[in-house]
Nucleic acid binder design. Structure first.
Lengths: 149, 149
DNA sequence: TGCATAAAGTGCGATATCGCACTAAATAGT
DNA sequence: ACTATTTAGTGCGATATCGCACTTTATGCA
């Protein structure tokens, strides 16, 4: 019974959409007033991948329009969690550096999320998720390339 | 090498978030001006699950605040794709019915998405996705129950 | 029955998101 | 070297999203 394949895609994207929504809400419930998931995501990225990248690089990494990244970075800079310096290699451009306060914030945020993760882990062991990661990455890349094409 | 389990959750939610974002953009690129994914999703739901439900029921089905659903339904009603009638069982409430125009719109939308799905299916066969569906549903339900608790 | 509480829907305000178009700077092609 | 084109970032405007508070109706409880 080869079910209507279209249905499978719709179901998949529907589930993914709701999970994204709910997990984001869960994250943001732990954040201090005005701090949103994108703020945290950028800080996390700066630490994991390294800082000094340009806003455009970050926008591409997160697959958001550059105007959205500008907005997110402005919020982080206002709170002194990042610092924006002119790019010595390109005067049109900037470099984004995380500050000490930014590192502290990121660490605290992760710590504050621990209870949620732990609770989730009980119902949904990490190994279970890990198995899905390669497929999800593949799908993300497919959509990504499709978009650019 | 039992990697930091927290990392796994972060990666998972990160991938899911980007997929949700990109797939939504792909969908909306096919929609006529002003029609968004939530509009389509509601129409699709009304057909698949059946219409006559209240706005609150729909809000819960999609895990969005009821104000968001009010907004989405208003858009659909303005375009005469749904009809809102008073709920005979409860004067506070309403019932949402899909119109003929709504059915036509939904069918056309699906048809217009076919090329995208087909393209995706080449890089990412439906069977591959189908395998993930049970896990995704389980995660969605976990988050859902967690939220209500 | 009468009153307190809860629930359904919406108006309003705040803000995140994002497309468009602009400026300034780099790059390509002659 | 000069001009045309491309690129990085952002201001602006439109709108989706969502929290809060309010109205109206239902429900629970004495």
């Amino acid at each position: 019974m080869p079910e209507d394949p279209t249905r499978v895609y719709f179901s998949f994207f529907n589930e993914v959409g709701i999970i994204a929504q709910l997990s984001r809400a869960m994250f943001e419930a732990r954040m201090p007033e005005g701090m949103l998931l994108p703020h945290f995501s950028v800080l996390n990225h700066l630490i994991r991948v390294g800082d000094g990248a340009t806003p455009l690089k970050l926008a591409r990494a997160f697959q958001v329009p550059k105007t959205s990244m500008t907005h997110t970075l402005a919020g982080l800079e206002d709170r002194a969690l990042i610092r924006m310096a002119p790019n010595p290699k390109d005067a049109r451009s900037k470099c984004v550096w995380i500050t000490d306060a930014g590192r502290v914030f990121r660490d605290k945020a992760i710590a504050s999320l621990a209870p949620d993760i732990e609770r989730l882990a009980k119902a949904f062991p990490a190994g279970n998720l890990e198995a899905m990661l390669p497929s999800l990455e593949a799908m993300r890349k497919t959509l990504d390339e499709d978009r650019s094409a």
